[in-house]
Design a protein around this nucleic acid. Sequence first.
DNA 1: AATGAATGAGATTTCATTCAT
DNA 2: TATGAATGAAATCTCATTCAT
Lengths: 178, 178, 178, 178
Amino acid sequence: MCFLERGYHQTGVRDIANRAQVSLGNLYNHFPGKHDVLVEIAMLERKEMDPFLKILAMRSPTPKVLDKFIRAYSKYLAAPENVILTLEISSEAIRQPDIAQLFVENRAELTDALTAVVKRGIDDKDFRAVPDPEQASQIIIEVLEGSAYRSVLSEVPMRKLMGSVKDFILTSLLPRQG
Amino acid sequence: MCFLERGYHQTGVRDIANRAQVSLGNLYNHFPGKHDVLVEIAMLERKEMDPFLKILAMRSPTPKVLDKFIRAYSKYLAAPENVILTLEISSEAIRQPDIAQLFVENRAELTDALTAVVKRGIDDKDFRAVPDPEQASQIIIEVLEGSAYRSVLSEVPMRKLMGSVKDFILTSLLPRQG
Amino acid sequence: MCFLERGYHQTGVRDIANRAQVSLGNLYNHFPGKHDVLVEIAMLERKEMDPFLKILAMRSPTPKVLDKFIRAYSKYLAAPENVILTLEISSEAIRQPDIAQLFVENRAELTDALTAVVKRGIDDKDFRAVPDPEQASQIIIEVLEGSAYRSVLSEVPMRKLMGSVKDFILTSLLPRQG
Amino acid sequence: MCFLERGYHQTGVRDIANRAQVSLGNLYNHFPGKHDVLVEIAMLERKEMDPFLKILAMRSPTPKVLDKFIRAYSKYLAAPENVILTLEISSEAIRQPDIAQLFVENRAELTDALTAVVKRGIDDKDFRAVPDPEQASQIIIEVLEGSAYRSVLSEVPMRKLMGSVKDFILTSLLPRQG
DNA sequence: AATGAATGAGATTTCATTCAT
DNA sequence: TATGAATGAAATCTCATTCAT
């Protein structure tokens, strides 16, 4: 909550302790330092991916799975707090290797699952044979998150952006002879 | 430089003054505060867009223009410093309205130019009639920048990512009957 | 002590911390800021009025009470530190409403007690029926403090001024037919 | 103006230069430093006493002169700016000998003139033979200024206090058998 | 006489962390 | 496990003054 409201660096350890209704000293009994609180949060973030992993694991036709995933993930990203937290973590990841690793791992979990779907879709001839399914997955995630950030910043609701986003992704992925 | 190396919040005003070979007090004769140094940088960033605007203004066939733009912009984004600075500014933009406005304005300059190209491409039947050219332009930029961030974080050179990125964008944009 | 020696504005928070044998950071664990240290002092000042309030509460004949009060209060004011601190607080009171309120409240405590004595003296026909006993009390306090300030500034001991001060007050207060 | 609005210590030399529409450097061509600006003001203050000195020099019956003086001086003190500036200077006088001397001199000019009036009044049997006319004069000034400060702080207009003030002074000064 | 950039010491305040209890 | 006082380095910013022009 604190990191969301004021950002990682502007948040004081005191703020965190107060918000958690824990004494300052006791916070340090549970976390070696401020940094580790962010690490903990980055690890908690990972669990939030579970529903999306479940969707991507479904054995329905891949276009349906993809559609469901996009819908669910964009709904998740429609909550500014999720976008801001991700940005906050991205930002720290630049200079803190352990955060970077966590971030990459979290992301890999999602893209790996999406990659599997894309590959299956290609096999099923539901998707175009993209040159590199893994890269394609990464790009799909990035398009979604990029739009989410834009939505926060320009205060345009995510759903207003989703039409074009979906069109962009699907056109790129579906076979040419619709 | 300081913001790049250590990040906005980890950089002290002293660091900036030292780096600029200016006394601390004198820095404050030129900038009301640390925040305004970032603002200044965000405004300088804008000028760096000029070459890309020039490319986008070219009257060559739109696929060629688009290709040239993607090449140039991705080369620019291949320099980690440009990615990091953009991330640093994005991050501040979340909580500082004036930075947000500058960021949005800078971005608009680029997407407006790109939108014009996309529209012209559609008119020329070189591009598919995407539902919303402006949105499409935004997404193209976001795909490029998202990949650049990924390149920095996973230490994969940008050029290794560009194949898929280009494929993704072009497939989405070019008419279905190649 | 610091405020006495160097004045409120010339005193640094560091000076206070050093003098109090407390680390600078810890001072801020106990006081939100420098201002609040002054507030605390203004509140402590109030307690110093207790002996005078006790005198004023005595049920002896009012001229005796008044005389005792003047003696006691002027003795208190003979210590330059008390005068200087009052001046320091007065000075801040001009622009800081909470200090002003404290100052007025402190003063009211004293003048209220003195007013009661004056009123009783009038009832007992020991004092002249002054038009407004409360105002008279205020003036008496002001005469005493004004003289004390003059004593500090011109380095004339307070006791040398007290003859005229007493004469001035008593002549104004005692009934015309001595 | 600056000293009035923000106080001597809170005012920066830059503020003064800006207000005076003079460049910072040029201010230092005219005054050796900030301190000397205050000195200059204290000296200007002296000239403001001229009208009161003129009144006190009048050869009319002393009770009339006294009355006229009290009226004029209390009117002057009814302007908070005059009170605040005096307090600001008093405050500095505590620790800066040259300001103290100026303040005492300014004050002496006024009290000397008032003392002369009191003495003449005693000779004329218009006033009671106070034990020390000079001290009495000082006290009269202090009563007036003390009331003025109270008027500023408690936001009661000076004229509401003047009834009691006048009564207090006159009762103390006029002969017992009115 | 005038300018304003330059200086560096010093101002107040915040901070992550430690530690005795 | 819990507490919160204590620490001191570092943060941002202000200030009176100087000085080359």
